[in-house]
Design a protein around this nucleic acid. Structure first.
Lengths: 140, 140
DNA sequence: GTATTACATGCACTTCTATGCATATATTAT
DNA sequence: ATAATATATGCATAGAAGTGCATGTAATAC
């Protein structure tokens, strides 16, 4: 089973894949994961994307359904990353990196970088911060 | 205006693009156009995809809205082709060619090839044929 | 045990999208 | 002019998908 995944026909696979890409929040999440050098937990994405936690969780569920994203649990934290074995994703990744430029993608990735710098080693230790106190050039 | 198109924000562009790709009929149309060495008219697509004419026209309208496809009119015939200048499409085309394999894409392209062989020069002269009488290995 | 925190999801609602049918438009032929 | 043909689209309906809120689950800390 290299390209075809369980219960999907050959034709459904690319269709469902592109459907999953057809949403701004999900593209923003993918932009983060294509950029980050490690897995990212939900609260870090909430911080980077400035969206409610349930939005991130829900769109992550969609991305997991089409196997673009997988997760590793560590305590109450869940670290999400791209499925390195995903055939189509590996084909599309270079184009995605090029297309997911400009706003809001650039600003999202900048916020993620600052947030990741708050880690203790490779672990998120911050959780949800309501009023984010990391200096950022508050331009809109 | 290289990458950004009129009335679309930077972020909407890739989102709308992938939304347009997230439909099997539209992917089948794109598979035809990525394969064919020339523009293809609607009745030829109807023949190749075995779908009602209004379906082809409607999905073509969606593809035209995101500028993936453009059209040239010649009499009552309208020849559709990929927009050779489309930045994202050119990035995605190699991956698309790889992903749009298997059924029904292969069979669609085979039917298109037979149908295109019925042209008079570079012109479609057949129109709609209700019961297509081109021999095909009828393996459903 | 209880409390807290990180994350996931059920529900109600709304909005978008697809589909089928019928019909409109436009061009050619007569 | 009418007829015929290729293509496009309006309309009604059905189903899918997005959104916000509240709540559920699971792990840790005490």
């Amino acid at each position: 089973m290299t390209r075809a995944e369980a219960h999907y026909s050959t034709a459904e696979l690319p269709t469902e894949l592109f459907k999953a890409l057809g949403d701004l929040t999900r593209l923003r999440i993918l932009s983060l994961l294509l950029h980050a050098p490690m897995r990212v937990c939900v609260c870090e994405m909430v911080h980077a994307l400035q969206l409610p936690q349930y939005q991130i969780s829900r769109q992550l569920a969609v991305l997991k359904r089409v196997k673009l994203v997988d997760a590793e649990k560590s305590g109450t934290w869940v670290y999400h990353g791209l499925d390195a074995e995903h055939y189509a994703l590996n084909r599309l990744a270079p184009a995605l990196r090029e297309l997911l430029q400009g706003e809001p993608f650039d600003r999202d990735r900048a916020r993620l970088d600052r947030r990741l710098s708050m880690r203790d080693g490779d672990r998120c230790v911050v959780g949800f911060v309501d009023n984010i106190s990391i200096p950022e050039n508050a331009q809109q």
